[in-house]
Amino acid sequence: MITKLNHVSIFVLDQDSAYDFYVNKLGFKVHTDASMGPGMRWLTVCPPEQPDLEITLMAISEGMMFKQEAATQMRDLVSKGTFGFGVFECNDLLATYEELKAKGVEFTKVPTKEFYGFEALFKDDSGNWFSLGEKAK
């Protein structure tokens, strides 16, 4: 019986820039930052109130996981905003929207009341997009 999801990967163009985005802009906490040598860095972050879900910021680089052609295609697709990787939650969407805007985060949809909830869409520094919803009160 599977009981939990504890790691999830987000593919990023540049780990240093992703670190700045997820830690300094979104306010996530670094869980593990382990360097194995040039181009081999295991970097995971957690949303502030979810320390047991590690988001692995995986560099799209040529290696065992990606052949050169696949890496090039993947970088292209990510930067074009092809992938939506998840839904984040906050307590107050208008305040969070305002704060992230002030920090330079790009939103592709302003907070909008939908039949399923109150939601905005934003992009990370690579081009991955996320929904940001407000916790039901």
Binding site: A34, S35, M36, W42, M64, M65
Partner: peptide, 16 residues
Amino acid sequence: APLNFIPNCFAEMNGW
């Protein structure tokens, strides 16, 4: 010992 902190499947897939 960085490998102790990395799930083995990821490390293997990346050739680490």
